[in-house]
Structure formats: structure tokens, C-alpha cells
């Protein structure tokens, strides 16, 4: 779904955690991040996050957009679009604006799409209000 856009963004990745590296602690980045290694702690970036097939993350994750193929044990909070490929394994809650899950992906947790719920509720309230007004007149 977001693949073409994501590929273009990740060409400008500012941080790459390779498969032969272990990271522990609060990993806070400014730009796009590619993770193929092991991370324990937390990851946060205002850019995009791509988690590769071999990646094992035991951390809460926060990013602008996400493309997940590896394993994450922790909550995932994405401000924009989140895509889980067929190899993705997420054990934790997901929060995203829009989400795409491929067949074969494993997801165990709760999913909330906060913006969508709010907009639906808002629409509903407006309609109710209009109906009430019509009745009054």
C-alpha cells in the first residue's frame, strides 16, 4: 500500500541498525530509521521507521510512518500510515492513523485508530444536532 512512497523515503535513511548490531537504551532519532538488528529499550523518531525481516525489537516504538517486517514486543504508536508485511510479528498494542496488514502477519494486541473514531463521533453528533433542530422547527 505505502511501498512506493516508503521506498523513496527510506533512500534518505539517516540511521541504519544492521543485523549484526545490538542496541540497548532509548534510541531517539530525528530522521528515517531502518532497523535490521536487535533493539531493547525504546525507539522514537519524527521520521519514518522500517523494521526488516531479521529485526527483533523489545521496545515501545513511535514514528511518523512505519513499515514492519520483523518482530516487535512492545506498543507501536504511528502518527500516519502503518504497514505490516507477511513476516511481521507484533506482540503489543498498535495506534495508527491508517493500517495495512498482509496475510501471514501476526498481531497480538489491541488496535486503535484514534483519529478515525473521533471523526466518526463528531459526524454523528452533528447529524443528531441537525435532526434535533429540524424537529424544533
Amino acid at each position: 500500500m505505502f511501498k512506493k512512497q516508503e521506498d523513496a523515503n527510506f533512500k534518505e535513511a539517516e540511521t541504519i541498525i544492521g543485523p549484526s548490531v545490538k542496541v540497548e537504551g532509548d534510541f531517539i532519532g530525528q530522521g528515517n530509521i531502518i532497523v535490521d538488528g536487535v533493539i531493547k529499550g525504546s525507539i522514537a523518531t519524527n521520521g519514518n521507521l522500517r523494521v526488516g525481516d531479521q529485526a527483533k525489537i523489545t521496545a515501545n516504538v513511535a514514528a511518523a510512518n512505519g513499515l514492519i517486517s520483523g518482530e516487535i514486543h512492545g506498543n507501536v504508536k504511528i502518527a500516519g500510515d502503518l504497514e505490516l508485511t507477511e513476516n511481521a510479528k507484533i506482540f503489543g498494542d498498535i495506534e495508527a492513523k491508517s493500517i495495512c496488514i498482509a496475510r501471514g502477519a501476526i498481531f497480538s494486541g489491541q488496535c486503535s485508530m484514534a483519529n478515525g473514531e473521533i471523526s466518526k463521533k463528531t459526524n454523528g453528533t452533528k447529524k443528531d444536532a441537525e435532526t434535533t433542530n429540524e424537529k424544533d422547527f
Binding site: 549484526s20 548490531v21 545490538k22 542496541v23 540497548e24 537504551g25
Partner: peptide, 11 residues
């Protein structure tokens, strides 16, 4: 001062 990195092989 925020995180550590440890390579897991020679290089």
C-alpha cells in the same frame, strides 16, 4: 548518553 551499541561479530 542515551543508548549503547554492541557489534555481534568481527569487523
Amino acid at each position: 548518553g542515551k543508548y549503547t551499541i554492541e557489534p555481534t561479530g568481527p569487523g
